[in-house]
């Protein structure tokens, strides 16, 4: 795939969307603070956002919900391994192993 110059605009916008929240209160000092209720609600943003990206990625194939597919099986394997062991490499080894194993055994399954 080829990207045009607008890719760099995306990077700059994302860079601002990273540095500004990070620098916000450190730069402002104690002059401002977030309402505690908002702080508590915002803690859920990363989990909600990650799931909103991952779940459709492994559950939707070509626009339809596919409850049986190699990516979903690999994702479930990775979840189980990540929940059980703290080794940072293991979910990648097991997840990729399951994905490639199923694809090798069942050619044509996505």
């Amino acid at each position: 795939m080829n990207y045009d110059a607008s890719l760099w605009l995306i990077f700059i916008v994302l860079g601002l969307a990273t540095t500004l929240p990070r620098a916000s209160f450190i730069v402002l000092g104690n002059r401002f603070s977030l309402p505690p209720t908002l702080q508590r609600a915002l803690r859920y943003a990363p989990a909600a956002a990650l799931a909103a990206i991952v779940v459709p990625d492994v559950l939707v194939i070509g626009g339809n919900v596919a409850p049986v597919n190699p990516k979903l099986a690999a994702a479930i394997a990775a979840i189980l391994v990540a929940a059980r062991w703290r080794n940072p490499w293991l979910p990648f080894i097991v997840g990729m192993g399951v994905l490639l194993g199923i694809k090798a055994l069942l050619p044509g399954q996505g």
Partner: peptide, 29 residues
């Protein structure tokens, strides 16, 4: 995708976080 899962799993250990993740993921589908 696996990397995002690795980030998500420890977050979802508390019940409300799990709810946030399940509702976020389910409604995205």
């Amino acid at each position: 995708t696996i990397a995002l899962i690795v980030l998500l799993v420890p977050m979802a250990k508390s019940r409300p976080m799990l709810v946030a993740a399940m509702v976020g993921g389910g409604s995205a589908v």
